[in-house]
Design a protein around this nucleic acid. Sequence first.
DNA 1: TCATTATATACCTATATCGGTATATGTCAA
DNA 2: TTGACATATACCGATATAGGTATATAATGA
Lengths: 121, 121
Amino acid sequence: MTYVARAATTADAFNAVAEPRRRQILDLLADGERPVNDLVRMLDLPQPMVSKHLRVLRAVKLVEVRDVGRQRLYAANGRHLKPIHDWVQHYERWWSKRFERLDDVLEELKQTEGGRNDRDD
Amino acid sequence: MTYVARAATTADAFNAVAEPRRRQILDLLADGERPVNDLVRMLDLPQPMVSKHLRVLRAVKLVEVRDVGRQRLYAANGRHLKPIHDWVQHYERWWSKRFERLDDVLEELKQTEGGRNDRDD
DNA sequence: TCATTATATACCTATATCGGTATATGTCAA
DNA sequence: TTGACATATACCGATATAGGTATATAATGA
């Protein structure tokens, strides 16, 4: 019956960032590196929780660490959020002013391309 | 010991979209409405899976349904992806050309915020 | 050395989820 | 009505989480 159950969900940026705490942590680290205990204090979370979230973030390379004495300084690395940015941007037309009047856009397209209308992607 | 375990993870757009299949479904529906069976065929997934993913997407209003005969036509509504867009955009500096020269970034920040520099840490 | 501080990890529990199969619901057509 | 089609839902099983506590590791300072 080979049950597959489910796949790991913390293995990519989308999932890493689906957890609100991890977004908070990233936001805090976006302004510059911080030791773990800073985060613990600012988030009011048990230290092991913070360490575990950091581990997930590190696994997907959204944060980097640097050892300084007995502290570990974490810093955000937003680079790997780009796939999310790119994917979401395809949906821009639902909020961007640029697409406010769809009719006009379609009209424009029709005029410009002259003939090619509907397709499947 | 009142265990809290974990919170529901399908209750917001971030989580809904963390699942790759659901992104696929959204992508398919972004071009226009489709009946469930279209998705079943295109994704090669068991129909109940598709229905369940659609349910999650509907719960966060990323899709809308319309009944036509015995079919249910689903359509994407990207509007609720905007929170993701907005959040991710804060990390734009990690990939955007606009931020290639740090000097410019600082200039820009200075212009935008007008003076406020360092804060509470 | 020992104590303190800083962080990570090993457990444990409860549960939300994914994946699957079987069944219910609902609609149309003959 | 009956049957076929379209979709949703009710189960069930396995497991990856989140959250918690206790402990390990590691560096510093006395």
